[in-house]
């Protein structure tokens, strides 16, 4: 039981970080980036390429994260521009269409180049006892990286001047413009951050199980569920939701079976929405 819970927490932290990348972009301009999971896969494939070329793992990981980030910035500066020129419902719909198109494009490209591509990140070292439960080194590394990234994010958004500027755009775009903050610049930064997070999650998740070229859509769906449960635009909400869903996921896999987990996850998400329509910490 304790072991299942710990596994759930490890998985949940990953879910949380995955959700953060999606929820930030949504909070900042109402766009649900359906290409989000594909950015993660893209990053993973770059990691795998650089690693196979003989580079050390850390360098390969940095290259993958950078690649996902660069792809996100490219998206923001090109196809997202017309989206952000719209407002309200038009922006939401056009955003869905455009990012869905990009998702198909990236998925198609990766499938064509390397249909069997997969990233496995091997972390050496034996299990370490945590609360009397032997935890694999990979889980410890993944969780440590995730927590570190989460802490940096919380400090960046909560306690720096630029972080405050970003939150001001989330709360009132016109107000932000009136004090001299450029919404489009902050959006580019957040898009970059979101891409980097996608890449990072790809690396940490590949530490425990291989990430394949075909998993982009799954990642996007998980991120969506976390975002909805956590409350759109909330970083701490995303982490809470991630933990909750991670624990639900491992419990249901343990007691019922792996095949049921996605349904249970969606059920949990639906239930949250019924009880708290704005998500756990939504505004």
């Amino acid at each position: 039981m304790k072991a299942v819970l710990l596994d759930g927490i490890v998985l949940g932290l990953g879910f949380g970080l995955l959700g953060v990348g999606l929820t930030l972009v949504y909070g900042l301009g109402g766009v649900l980036n359906l290409a989000y999971g594909e950015l993660a896969v893209l990053g993973a494939m770059v990691v795998s390429l650089v690693k196979d070329a003989g580079a050390p793992l850390a360098l390969a990981a940095v290259a993958g994260v950078a690649a996902a980030m660069a792809a996100a910035v490219l998206l923001d500066l090109t196809v997202m521009r017309p989206v952000y020129r719209q407002s309200g419902e038009h922006r939401v719909l056009l955003g869905l269409l455009v990012t869905l198109g990009v998702a198909f494009l990236i998925e198609g490209l990766l499938n064509w180049r390397d249909p069997l591509g997969a990233l496995t990140v091997d972390i050496g070292g034996g299990p370490i006892g945590i609360f009397g439960v032997p935890m694999p080194m990979s889980s410890i590394w993944a969780s440590a990286i995730t927590l570190g990234a989460g802490a940096i994010l919380v400090v960046f958004l909560g306690a720096t001047t630029f972080g405050r500027a970003i939150r001001s755009v989330m709360q009132d775009e016109v107000g932000a413009r009136l004090v001299g903050i450029s919404p489009s610049f902050t959006r580019t930064v957040i898009f970059a951050l979101s891409g980097a997070l996608a890449g990072l999650v790809a690396v940490t998740s590949a530490m425990s199980s291989p990430l394949t070229v075909t998993q982009g859509f799954d990642l996007t769906s998980f991120a969506l569920i976390v975002t909805v449960v956590g409350g759109l635009g909330s970083v701490t909400g995303a982490f809470l939701a991630g933990l909750l869903l991670g624990i639900v996921d491992t419990l249901s896999a343990y007691y019922v079976g792996q095949y049921i987990t996605s349904v249970v996850l969606l059920g949990a998400a639906g239930l949250t929405i019924l009880i708290r329509p704005r998500g756990l910490l939504g505004r």
């Binding site: 709360q171 009132d172 016109v174 107000g175 009136l178 001299g180 919404p183 505004r283």
Partner: peptide, 23 residues
């Protein structure tokens, strides 16, 4: 654009105020 006008030294207080409500 508006944020550059603001930085150039024109401050506008709209009737709807547009504050940052959760701050």
């Amino acid at each position: 654009r508006a944020h550059r006008v603001a930085r150039a030294g024109v401050a506008y207080v709209p009737a709807e105020r547009h504050l940052f409500p959760a701050m």
